[in-house]
Amino acid sequence: MHELSITQSVVDAVRERLPDTPIASIQLEIGKLSGIVADSVRFCFELVVDGTPLEGARLDIDEPGGRAHCACCDTEFELEDSILLCPCGSADVAVLAGQQLRITSVEVV
């Protein structure tokens, strides 16, 4: 249940950067390979913001998919999960995207 501490980190980071500012919404990017379940973050968000200036704020989560580069056939391909296997059969691949866990922006009231 690391999503609870992840969500707490989101709320702490926003409050640290914009203390006492009423927030309408928070935009998050949670890559599909990040190991974070977006639905759990949504669930935890309501619990974490309860009684804070962020209570009532909307949470928008973008979930970019995984992309990787294969050193063997020098191509980029989509990664559906954490199994690092290129369609050419090589496992010599580098993950390019999908591991993000970022607060991209917040909308102030």
Binding site: V10, A13, R17, L101, S105
Partner: peptide, 24 residues
Amino acid sequence: GHDHDHRDAEHGRLVMLEQQVLAK
């Protein structure tokens, strides 16, 4: 991270944070 403002006529002020959640 860094932050700067973007105005949006329809909505409130959008503040770009571009911060890693686990930065702390």
